[in-house]
Computed example of a mutant assay.
Amino acid sequence: MQLYNKMSAKERAAMLEEAGEDRLTLSFYQYANIGNPELFRNHLFVAWDELQVLGRIYVAKEGINAQLSVPAKNFGNFKEFIDGIYFLENVRLNIAIEHDLKSFLKLKVKVRHKIVADGLNDNSFDVTNKGIHVDAEGFNKLLEDPDTVLVDMRNHYESEIGHFKGAVTPDVDTFRDSLDIIEEDLKDHKEDKKLVMYCTGGIRCEKASAYYKHKGFKNVFQLEGGIIEYARQVENKGLENKFLGKNFVFDHRRGERISEDIIANCHQCGEPCDTHVNCANEACHLLFIQCESCRETMQECCSTECQEIIQLPYEEQKKLRSGQHNSNKIFKKGRSEKLKFKK
């Protein structure tokens, strides 16, 4: 029984390119009581590997959080499989606005302590006492209410390239960082304001809305299905789009364009740009915004130091990123003094 990837990302990319078959990028989540996450993880891997599903999936005792790429031809079988799991039957699938053959290049199903790292003690409050879910139309109406405070529950590198008009966008690196900051900023308005939250697909708001109700907020709302579902409903129903720019996504695409507005800038030259890249130096791998001109000049690197490193032989580069101390510097999200035009 195969429970791991046998093919490298590079090999998989070449295979997908050669096959040229349509794939759907989608995500879903569900809070549920999973008694044996390891066994459930193995069950998913075997079934989805057979269906050629790729993606990043987190399983915990509290539920599942999945971002996937599914062959279009296998979507029916995929849907039948998840509907056969009692707590996933008819679960909402957030299907991407833009699709890409190579949005994911491996199938990774991991067992975690939580499906979202929120840093909360779930036993201290009722996680099922959530806020009111609203669709795109209801959300737009709430935004017109002067008593509404709209809060982006995502991180700084997500909201930098796209957010709703008038939203509070905390300058945080992680979801857990935003929870206390938002409560402190709004502590005087727990009863007289409507707290309206949104995130990418809705999962962060599920826990946050219950947490804020526990903290005394009386009027708590959350955007059903997040930005992904909002964009779909706006298009299907002909509603006004109140989202500016791109929606950051956690796959190789790194973003879906929701409006033509470019609200960010290249972190190296300052020109309007909202394209996220990872530094070509694997010992850095910094996530930052880079325009085409700087991409060419800097060889996809965030700094001249990283440019010099990628010229070294592969084995020397490998040594530079070995060891725990160096690995802690990897996967930073746009936080670097080398980026002159970072907001």
Rank of each mutant, 00 (worst) to 15 (best):
residue 4 Y to T: 11
residue 138 G to A: 09
residue 297 T to P: 00
residue 18 E to G: 00
residue 85 I to F: 03
residue 308 E to I: 00
residue 89 E to S: 14
residue 16 L to V: 04
residue 211 Y to M: 06
residue 204 R to E: 06
residue 111 V to C: 14
residue 1 M to I: 11
residue 15 M to S: 14
residue 248 F to T: 07
residue 35 G to C: 05
residue 268 Q to H: 08
residue 212 Y to E: 02
residue 192 D to L: 12
residue 322 S to C: 03
residue 229 E to A: 04
residue 61 K to D: 02
residue 286 L to T: 04
residue 72 A to M: 14
residue 304 T to S: 14
residue 39 L to T: 14
residue 157 Y to V: 11
residue 56 R to I: 06
residue 61 K to V: 07
residue 167 A to H: 08
residue 248 F to P: 04
residue 291 C to G: 06
residue 290 Q to G: 02
residue 41 R to N: 03
residue 110 K to D: 02
residue 131 G to M: 09
residue 306 C to S: 13
residue 24 L to S: 11
residue 92 R to E: 05
residue 303 S to V: 10
residue 180 D to E: 13
residue 139 F to I: 05
residue 24 L to A: 05
residue 127 V to T: 14
residue 173 D to F: 00
residue 336 S to C: 10
residue 90 N to M: 02
residue 229 E to C: 00
residue 75 F to L: 12
residue 287 L to T: 13
residue 90 N to D: 14
residue 223 L to G: 05
residue 139 F to M: 01
residue 49 D to I: 03
residue 121 N to P: 00
residue 315 E to T: 07
residue 278 N to C: 00
residue 58 Y to V: 00
residue 68 L to N: 04
residue 333 K to S: 06
residue 281 N to L: 02
residue 5 N to H: 08
residue 166 G to M: 12
residue 45 F to H: 04
residue 83 D to H: 01
residue 315 E to R: 10
residue 83 D to Q: 02
residue 225 G to P: 01
residue 14 A to M: 06
residue 7 M to V: 14
residue 321 R to I: 11
residue 278 N to D: 01
residue 8 S to H: 06
residue 316 E to H: 12
residue 66 A to Y: 10
residue 165 K to N: 11
residue 262 I to R: 03
residue 23 R to M: 10
residue 102 K to V: 05
residue 200 T to V: 07
residue 55 G to N: 07
residue 223 L to F: 03
residue 207 K to M: 00
residue 243 F to K: 10
residue 309 I to H: 02
residue 338 K to V: 10
residue 100 D to R: 03
residue 243 F to E: 05
residue 165 K to T: 14
residue 173 D to N: 15
residue 20 G to M: 07
residue 240 E to P: 06
residue 340 K to L: 15
residue 133 H to L: 14
residue 102 K to M: 12
residue 201 G to E: 04
residue 270 G to Y: 12
residue 64 I to G: 01
residue 274 D to Q: 11
residue 15 M to A: 15
residue 61 K to Y: 03
residue 296 E to F: 05
residue 188 D to E: 15
residue 170 P to D: 02
residue 91 V to S: 03
residue 58 Y to R: 12
residue 197 M to S: 06
residue 141 K to I: 07
residue 339 L to A: 08
residue 203 I to L: 13
residue 216 G to N: 05
residue 88 L to C: 08
residue 245 G to Q: 08
residue 49 D to E: 15
residue 279 C to W: 13
residue 97 I to K: 15
residue 59 V to G: 03
residue 218 K to R: 10
residue 144 E to Q: 14
residue 272 P to H: 13
residue 100 D to A: 08
residue 10 K to I: 09
residue 308 E to Q: 12
residue 7 M to S: 04
residue 193 K to G: 03
residue 3 L to P: 02
residue 266 C to T: 01
residue 107 L to M: 04
residue 38 E to L: 09
